[in-house]
Amino acid sequence: MMRRLLLAIFLLTAAPLAAQDYAHEALADPAQEAAAIELMDSLRCVVCQGQPISGSNADIAGDMRRIVRERIAAGETPEQVREWLITRYGDFVSFKPVVKPATWGLWLVPLAALLLGLVLVSRRVRLRRN
């Protein structure tokens, strides 16, 4: 009787481990899981494009979460995993804008606008003084 009970307990606890599916289940290590979640929040689901993969019910978003958790569990950094997906789907898969010649405008226009504003204001201030 005791042995059967033990066996039943073992089986009950073993089954979820065997069926571990990182598409829907968290990593055991909380620090790794936190890193994975942070990354998943900034990756685009390629089907439901407005959503990050962390918040999408699409099958393929689950597939992408599985890849993210597996690779983080294997010791890759979040940026390496992001790179893995960009290699396959291009920059659009990442919500984090990258700095490269095609996106220089994105980064430089606000700076240029700020500089222009400073120049205009300083000229105005000088005119007032005179």
Partner: peptide
Amino acid sequence: EGRSQLEIGSS
């Protein structure tokens, strides 16, 4: 698990 699909960049 969509592994080959992700590998070839199919969406």
